[in-house]
Structures are given as C-alpha cells and as structure tokens.
C-alpha cells in the first residue's frame, strides 16, 4: 500500500497559496501595514518620513487624508496641525476647515500652512496619540477638535489592540493582512449594506450596532465626557510642555426637540474645553460660532458639516487666532 506523506500535496498547495497571497499583500501594500493591528494606537502609524518630507497616508493604522509637508517647518510660515475626527476630516482636505484655515489666514496677510489630521472614529485617546507624534514636526499651533461621540469606539479599539497583540490563538487568523482585509470588506461592504440595521442591532453582532446599543445605555455621555476631559487635559499639558499653543474646538451637534424644533447642543464639551483654558490654551465653541447663524444648512447630518459649515468654522478660527494673539505667542 502506498504511504502518504505527513503533509498532503493538497494541504501544502493550499498553504503555499495562502502564504503567497499574504506575502504579495505585505510586499505590494507595504504602507498599508503601518500600525495595521494597533487600531490607531500605534504612535507613528500614517506618518511616513521620506527624503526630508513627511507623508500623511491612509494606512491600516491611521487613515489620514493624503498630505505632505517638510520635516522641518519652512521659515516664516505658521505650521498648524488640526487634529480631530470625522467632523474635522470633512469630505476633502480642501473643503475642510483644517484645509481652509491656511487660505483664510493668507487672506488676512499671515503666511501659514495647515494640515488636516482628522481621522474618522478617533476619540480622545487616539487624538492624543496623533497629537503627541505630530509635535515632532514642530507645529506653531495645534487645533484639537474635541468630541465625545467616538469614545465607545476608542475604548473598543483599545481593548481590541490589546487583545489582538495577546498570544490567544483566536487572534491568529486575523494576523494575516489578506484575511483581515477580506473580513473587513465583508463586514463593511456586505454585512452593513445588505443586512437591515434593525436586524443587526437586535442581534448585536457587529461593532457599529454595539455602539448604537452602548450609546443608549444610561450614563454613557457622562462616562465618555469623563474620558474626554482626562485626555484633553493630557493633550493640553503635553502641547504646553512643548511650548506649543493649543486651540480646543468644542463640537456642537443638532438636537431635535419633541416639538420638532432644532437646536445646537454641546453635550458638556464647552465646559471641558473652558476648564483647560490657560495662557497658551484657548477655546472656540462651535455652538457659539454656528448657533447665531442659520445652522441647519451648514450641517450635512446632525454632527458633520457641509463645505459651507467648514468655511464658517475656518473663518471663525482665523479670527480667533488673530484676535486672541495666539499666533504671536509663537512667532
């Protein structure tokens, strides 16, 4: 009787195929690897340094909008980093208030460059990590957009990165970039699109729905604000320790009253920001900027701004920077 080898040809072939795909993904999509399994908690993911330039890239670790700047800031130009979440990120760099800020300052005779470091889903913890690394590139000002709607996701991703880097074998398959990509595509492009939200929520089978469930739990806002307060304080301390002024922009979202009328609500973020204001730390309230205007056309949904909204914010920030003398603190 013919004896079979320990590992059959079929198994060997399947394994080689899998390894080949994995290697190809790792070689040809190398940038995508940056902080891939740190879930945004990698200190430098997305900041790719090359020939004296820093490229902000959309990587597995941080999904920046692609932008580039020199490692050393140019002489006589104010460098501003705007750090935030999907609200900051906007629909493009140019239309976001982060991108428009330099234009508004130039229009006021101030030479400046501003970069959009907003990443969808990032909460206070991950924004803080982005801020800490961005200080290596010597900004003259950091604008930190504070919000409390991503704290659940931040916490979940933190636990996930911790667990993912543990030894447990259930994490092993997902350490493969190729498998991870298939899984993410299936979740985002198929599961979320093909299965109605009410079914997903009733069975709480995925992240987005778990977040909706968590948001409705009692005391969620208070818990999340506590985290935002702690981390914003930490971010402010770090910036000031590096002698870099920081402007805190507090988020405002639209709330619909029972009678159908709509108003802007800051969810306690204004107080958190105000508590941090000292010499070198400033606050600008989105609620105050937009609340005096016809705000509904400025919003794309209850939280995110349209290009017009971003323009209003960019102008308000530029005014704030000039009026409060923030820019003169540095140069």
């Amino acid at each position: 009787m013919k004896s079979n080898p320990l590992i059959s040809h079929a198994l060997l072939f399947g394994a080689c195929l899998m390894i080949a795909v994995e290697l190809a993904v790792r070689i040809f999509f190398q940038d995508n690897m940056s902080g891939r399994f740190e879930y945004g908690f990698h200190p430098s993911a997305g900041f790719i340094e090359e020939d004296g330039q820093v490229h902000l890239k959309r990587t597995g670790g941080r999904r920046f909008r692609p932008q580039s700047f020199t490692v050393e800031p140019p002489e006589g130009v104010f460098r501003i980093f705007v750090i935030g979440d999907s609200v900051t990120r906007g629909s493009s760099v140019e239309s976001s208030y982060a991108g428009r800020l330099a234009v508004e300052l130039k229009a006021r005779g101030i030479s400046a460059e501003s970069y959009n470091l907003g990443i969808g889903g990032h909460g206070a913890r991950r924004k803080h990590l982005t801020l800490v690394h961005s200080l290596n590139y010597k900004p003259d000002l950091v604008v930190l957009h504070i919000n409390n709607s991503n704290e659940f996701e931040d916490e979940r991703e933190f636990l996930r990165s911790t667990e993912f880097n543990s030894w447990h074998p259930r994490n092993w398959p997902m350490k493969s970039i190729a498998l991870r990509r298939v899984y993410e595509m299936k979740t985002e492009k198929v599961f979320w699109r093909w299965i109605p939200a009410s079914i997903r929520i009733s069975q709480s089978k995925n992240d987005a729905d778990a977040e909706i469930v968590a948001m409705s739990s009692e005391g969620a806002t208070e818990r999340w604000n506590q985290r935002v307060q702690e981390m914003t304080g930490e971010s402010t301390r770090v910036a000031m320790a590096n002698n870099i002024p920081i402007l805190l922009v507090s988020q405002a979202k639209i709330i619909e009253e029972l009678n159908g009328s709509r108003r802007l609500e800051d969810n306690g973020l204004e107080k958190i920001a105000e508590d941090q204001v000292t010499n070198g730390a400033f606050h600008l309230s989105m609620k105050q900027v937009l609340g005096n205007l016809e705000f509904e056309p400025l919003y794309a949904d209850r939280s995110h701004l349209r290009a017009e909204g971003h323009e209003v914010m960019a102008k308000a920030i530029a005014r704030k920077l000039i009026d409060s003398g923030i820019l003169s603190l540095k140069k």
Binding site: S8, H9, A10, L11, L12, F13, G14, A15, L17, M18, R170, P173, M174, L179, V182, Y183, K186, K205, N206
Partner: peptide, 22 residues
Amino acid sequence: HWATRGFIYLLLFVFTATSMVN
C-alpha cells in the same frame, strides 16, 4: 486533483476564518 483540493481547502479556510466573529 490535489491542486483543486488545495484550492478548495484554502477557500474553505478563508470563508471560515473571516466568519469567526459570530
């Protein structure tokens, strides 16, 4: 053929590994 079998094993593994969240 062993190559077909290997390909089937790979597909089954990918389908299974990417469904382990439930």
